[in-house]
Computed example of a mutant assay.
Amino acid sequence: MSSIMIQGTTSSAGKSMMSMALCRIFSKDGHNVSPFKSQNMSREFTYTEDHKKISVAQAIQAVAAGKRPQTQMNPILLIPDTNTGSKVLLHGEEVGLMEAREYFEYRKSLKETVRSTYDELHSSHDIVVIEGAGSPAEINLRQDDIVNMGMAEMADAPVLLVTDIDRGGAFAALYGTVMLLEPHERRRIKGLIINKFRGDASLLDSGIKILEEKLGIPVLGIVPYAETQIADEDSIVEGSKKEFHGESGIDSLQMEIDRFSEIVRDSLDMDYIYSLLGEIND
């Protein structure tokens, strides 16, 4: 059994979509795959077969992996209710409404829940694709972290760091994110991904060379900007398509997942990514 984690330099860098694509790629290659995001903050959720709530992003990743959505894939869901508070759901059921400081204190008690839930998935799948939240460089939130580097350490997972170049400042975002991490955290980052690029990718060659020399971490590929009917679900994205397709739209969803995952497969060094997984027990 193996795992790999996708983290981002910012919210909406493309973590959800990249995780979805890897779920589909690994699944198509014959592996038993599950998505996992320990904690997701989102207003967009759907229901599992036992009528528990799960974020739309993990539900779509489940479809990409050929699985039914289940709460183990997203054990903690935070649904923003006010500017400072959220409804807290544990395994799909509401625990209560908490202000940020109250939740950060409560979060300390959730580490073992996250660990045991992840261990369940890990023991029953060939590969678990773990998605982070926001950015691991949010150093004010590092203590008791259970969703970024704290999660990577629990899973002992290699990390791929993705950035959105369409926003600008991608090289600074990658460099700054890595350098704000502790040395043992930096060592977990095994590859960098430049996402949402428009234009001639060769124009990035000199910048990539400098970045790789400074960080000692390879850039695994440049993923072109791709319009899809699948929302890059994130609490920062407003006004985009974010509904879960459900059974009625499953065929079109599958086609979109296939299309985007092939773009990712063609763009990234998948041989290198597979090498990070080590031996997979089929």
Rank of each mutant, 00 (worst) to 15 (best):
H51P: 00
T113K: 09
H91D: 09
I4Y: 09
F26K: 02
E44G: 00
L97N: 08
K111L: 10
F104P: 06
S27P: 08
T82I: 07
S11Y: 01
A62P: 09
I60Y: 01
D81S: 15
H31G: 00
K67F: 00
S16E: 06
R68N: 13
E112A: 13
P69L: 05
S27T: 13
E112F: 09
V33R: 07
M41C: 02
I60K: 02
Q58Y: 03
L110C: 11
K28C: 07
S55A: 15
T48A: 05
K108T: 13
E102A: 13
E120W: 04
M73V: 03
K15C: 00
H91K: 14
E102M: 08
E112M: 12
T82R: 05
M20P: 08
T84L: 12
I79M: 11
G96S: 07
D81F: 10
L110A: 10
T113M: 12
G85Y: 13
K67L: 14
T48F: 07
I25H: 08
S116L: 14
V95R: 13
D50P: 04
G30V: 04
T84W: 02
L77S: 08
S42R: 06
S12I: 04
E49I: 12
V33S: 05
I25A: 01
H91E: 10
I76T: 06
L77Q: 09
L121C: 07
D50Y: 06
L22H: 11
N83L: 08
Q7I: 11
S3D: 08
Y106W: 10
K52F: 03
Q72M: 06
D50M: 01
N40E: 11
V63M: 10
T9G: 02
T82K: 13
T9N: 09
R68C: 00
T48P: 07
S19N: 06
M73G: 00
S55F: 06
P75W: 05
Y103L: 11
S86Q: 11
K87D: 14
K37C: 03
T82P: 01
M73Q: 00
C23V: 12
A65R: 00
S11E: 06
R101M: 08
E49T: 14
Y47V: 05
Y103I: 01
Y118D: 12
L110D: 07
R24F: 12
L22Y: 14
A13V: 08
R107W: 05
K87C: 09
D29T: 02
S34P: 05
I79E: 15
I6P: 04
I25D: 06
K67W: 01
F45W: 05
C23E: 10
A100T: 15
L121Q: 07
K108A: 11
Q58K: 02
A59N: 03
M20G: 07
V33W: 08
S116A: 12
V56M: 03
N40F: 11
K53F: 04
M5P: 12
A21G: 11
S3E: 05
E105V: 14
E99N: 12
S109C: 01
E44D: 15
G14Q: 02
I54H: 02
F26N: 03
I79Y: 03
P75L: 04
M73W: 04
S34A: 15
M17A: 01
G8C: 07
K37M: 06
M41E: 04
Q61T: 03
N74Q: 11
E44S: 14
